[in-house]
Design a protein around this nucleic acid. Structure first.
Length: 259
DNA sequence: ATCTATTCCTGGCTGC
DNA sequence: TGCAGCCAGGAATAGA
């Protein structure tokens, strides 16, 4: 599932392939992925490609093409259309293919940056500790749902939330505002480190994820708790436990991450 | 503010 | 082998 490191990798691999290119035609095959017409992008030039949390923002000479990969979305330059192709962008040089089997992704064209992007909290990989600590201390809810809340912090999803909490030795149900400065600092460090390491390895490829060149990431082999239910904790050999938190599968070590 | 449940979608899995 | 049923989950949404 594309989270911050995967989206960052897509943006980095996409950039050299599309910046300066002119969009000559667009074909949207899914009303679910593209609920509004995308015709406005035709004739526009791609100025830059930016990441806003998990959103990909193609800044055009007029307006913005905003793409969210959802769970199974891929955006590939110079690829061939397949059975799950939901949108095709014909460029003056090359083509951009959006594939998405489960259609949880969204493509939107607007003259202004869409509200869903404006509402995003600070970037999980960029937020300074003092700001993180201040925001955290004001919250009474559980830490995991809070980290998943894109208005609180942008970019974390289920995988990296579980991995960061494990590294920081914090229970997913711990109350955010009661973590204390020491544990908050551990958590902030863990978030920044796990995201940085994942970006270095091109993200995690669990099922569908590939970058704009079609290459899979390799960070999944470094996962310590996510998808390791029942396997021994890499630190203490206690079996990794899976519980449900806010309707999400949550993986943690019951010994390293005490309540 | 915070929580729960629901909705979108379909490949892949389980169990019979 | 075939098929029904369920699960995975990001984010919006409704309702408590």
């Amino acid at each position: 599932m594309p989270e911050l490191p995967e989206v960052e990798t897509v943006v980095r691999t996409l950039r050299p392939r599309v910046v300066g290119r002119r969009i000559q035609a667009v074909r949207a095959m899914s009303r679910f992925v593209a609920p509004q017409p995308l015709d406005g992008v035709v004739g526009r030039t791609i100025l830059t490609v930016e990441r806003a949390a998990k959103h990909i923002l193609l800044v055009l000479d007029a307006g913005f093409l905003c793409i969210h990969l959802g769970m199974t979305g891929t955006l590939r330059a110079g690829a061939e259309p397949g059975p799950y192709t939901r949108a095709v962008f014909q460029l003056d040089q090359g083509v951009l293919i959006y594939d998405d089997p489960r259609q949880f992704g969204r493509i939107e064209y607007a003259l202004e940056i869409p509200p869903r992007v404006r509402r995003l909290g600070p970037d999980a990989h960029q937020i300074p500790f003092e700001e993180f600590w201040k925001k955290l201390a004001a919250r009474r809810g559980r830490i995991k749902p809070l980290l998943l809340d894109q208005r609180f912090l942008g970019g974390l999803g289920n995988i990296y939330t579980d991995e960061a909490l494990f590294r920081a030795r914090i229970h997913p149900l711990a109350v955010a505002g009661r973590l204390g400065r020491r544990r908050a600092l551990r958590l902030h460090t863990a978030i920044v480190e796990v995201l940085g390491e994942a970006i270095e390895l091109g993200g995690s490829s669990i099922s569908d994820y590939v970058d704009a060149e079609g290459r899979a990431g390799t960070f999944q082999i470094r996962h310590r708790v996510y998808g390791r239910t029942g396997e021994p904790c890499v630190v203490c050999r206690t079996p990794v436990r899976r519980i449900l938190v806010a309707q999400r599968g949550t993986h943690y070590c019951p010994r390293c991450q005490r309540p």
